[in-house]
Nucleic acid binder design. Sequence first.
DNA 1: GAATTAACCTACTATTTTAGTCAGGAATTC
DNA 2: GAATTCCTGACTAAAATAGTAGGTTAATTC
Lengths: 187, 187
Amino acid sequence: MRLSTKGRYSVTAMLDLAIHDKAGPVTLADISQCQGISLSYLEQLFARLRKSGLVKGVRGPGGGYRLARPASEISIAEIICSVDENVDVTRCKGQGNCQDGSKCLTHELWTNLSTKLHEFLSGITLAQFVERPGIPELSLQRDKKIGRFILAKKQAAAINQGVFAVSKNINTNERASTGLVDKVSVR
Amino acid sequence: MRLSTKGRYSVTAMLDLAIHDKAGPVTLADISQCQGISLSYLEQLFARLRKSGLVKGVRGPGGGYRLARPASEISIAEIICSVDENVDVTRCKGQGNCQDGSKCLTHELWTNLSTKLHEFLSGITLAQFVERPGIPELSLQRDKKIGRFILAKKQAAAINQGVFAVSKNINTNERASTGLVDKVSVR
DNA sequence: GAATTAACCTACTATTTTAGTCAGGAATTC
DNA sequence: GAATTCCTGACTAAAATAGTAGGTTAATTC
């Protein structure tokens, strides 16, 4: 099991949008440069995110992408679903073809497990990550270094105005990442 | 994001082992026939499961595979980890190469998310699925139909002896599976 | 002890997915 | 009208997945 880079890129990019949301649209060129992802590839991903109604594109100079909804209403699950299209279901597609006529156990197992997984990922929102203490400041610091000056300026103003209020931070789970963890979800 | 068939096959096969565990070893040929998976492919998966210490092979006639530990001590996460090898981590491997010297946000985000996902999958054991009411009986019924007679016989005896006690059943979540759910985890 | 069963092992192959490139067009701002 | 940025579709190389094939070894049964 793994999270494709497609999914990872998307979540990361959306996080970037969420962090800079109050400061205005973020261009894909910025994200591309900052995260070392091909611009064209990002465009493909954002085409899907836009079709899913997660982001809004703003054309022309000063344009870019913004979140279509508040970060608190966008879950990790939604992001991943919009870029990963895996529509085909279990081996026995609904009617159960496990050699006999009866519905096979497998189907129920997977719908159950997938439902639980989806519920889990639905419970994590972009906002929960943005709201963690230090994140906006760290992001600003980084932006300045790589030359996202205009954005950094707008963002700094936003921070000063207290837009990035630090609220209930999520369970950080700082313990060292084991090999197992990496295998499960980070590709 | 998706669960590879590699992972899905493995979990399903392990579930089969768990259901028939008290009745003796299960052959890969049986699983192959029942689930329509290539025998050779199953062998490759079980080689990994064995190396991970999740199953024990029993050679010769009447042999097959058994769980190396009680089903209650084998989590879905362990199974998936043993067959999926994705060792490479996030883009910035530890030191953070997001154009500047500082550790990028992304890394923390993913270790955090992956830890949570792993914890989630670690919390689900094979036993939880086997113990759901009706599963052993349904499995027996199916086994009979496709000709797993010897196994079915042993299993029926086991059921009669009350080996498959129905204990606390897990949250079944019967609601219809949405497209979203399939996209998230079932490939 | 020969035949059978079934685990165990290694190498190869086709298909699909991923990740990326390229080449352009359309809206917006200056 | 020139620059900027989104937006679109078609193509491509590399990697992972899923499956094949052909064999060896250990235990059991006859």
